Amino acid sequence: MTQAPRRGYVATRFGQLHYAECGTGEPVLLLHQTPRSWTEYLDVLPLVGTARRAIAMDTLGFGASAKPAGPHSVERYADAAGALVDALGLDRYHLVGHHTGGVIAVELAARHPDRVASLLLSATPFVDAEKRRAAVRVDHVVPRPDGSHLLDLWNHRRGFYRDGEEAALHRYLVDALTVLDRVTEGHEAVRRYAMAERLPLVRARTLAVCAPGDHHALPSLPKLAAALGCPTRLLSGGHVPVPEQLPGEFAELVLDWVGRG
């Protein structure tokens, strides 16, 4: 039987940061895409927790973490993730990041090459001139008095999910509504990130993976791998929400990569 996640907060200069964790042993920090929360790893967390201390945080500005004023940036997300790592006393840890979480993981690994034991980048965008030109509006809605924008929000991502995966789509909707006034800012922060300057600083053993149906991220996979000189892996299926669609395969991949060190 898998264990229920333990929930907690740490106090930082940004305000309180929320996280959930399962298991004990070597820590593995999982970072979610935006505008999601730790619940993107709801089913992955206890599986990774069978062999490691699996920790999924709510990125600064999302989920139940503090939502400070001011512009979002990958650097500030990484500042807050670093503050959580310090507060939890994680001297050395493994990193897993999905979509925006992968970009944050790149920044953390570039800053702390002596502390990041391994890096798994899932569907992580390669931020170049082409990426900066591609405005992502998938989560953008205009609130209307009749509430019809809620259906718009649902339908914008409905195509990423198969029939029977509505529970995961509900979790997305809850997360997006929590930050509806700033729902696209995570994507905008990624497009502003100076990734080319940071990738050469990454020293951690790295694996780049993607779901075959994730047409948003799949074109970045060979570019990211070439820049980092790392291997790649395609999952057996799935789309943008692959940690929710294939939690067992995703968790097995994480544990395999972490264990190779």
Rank of each mutant, 00 (worst) to 15 (best):
P5I: 08
R6A: 05
G8Y: 07
A20P: 10
V28C: 03
V28W: 00
V28M: 04
L31P: 08
T34W: 05
T34G: 04
P35D: 10
W38S: 05
W38E: 04
I55C: 08
M57V: 13
D58M: 07
T59W: 00
L60N: 10
S65A: 07
P68S: 03
P68F: 00
P71W: 06
S73E: 03
R76D: 02
A81G: 02
D86T: 15
Y93T: 01
H94Y: 12
V96G: 01
G97Y: 05
H98A: 09
P113F: 02
D114V: 06
V116W: 00
S118V: 13
V127I: 15
A129M: 01
E130V: 09
K131Q: 05
R132K: 09
V136Q: 01
V138I: 15
D139S: 14
H140E: 12
V141I: 15
G147W: 12
G147R: 11
H149W: 15
H149S: 08
W154R: 15
R157A: 06
R162W: 03
A167R: 13
L169P: 05
Y172F: 15
A176V: 11
T178P: 02
L180G: 03
D181G: 02
T184N: 15
Y193P: 12
A196G: 04
R198T: 08
R205L: 06
T206D: 03
L207N: 03
V209W: 07
G213H: 13
D214S: 08
H216L: 07
P222V: 05
P222L: 03
L224E: 11
A226K: 14
A227N: 05
G229D: 07
R233C: 06
S236T: 15
G238A: 13
V240E: 09
P241G: 13
V242Q: 14
G248R: 10
A251P: 10
L255T: 10
W257D: 02
R260D: 00
R260M: 01
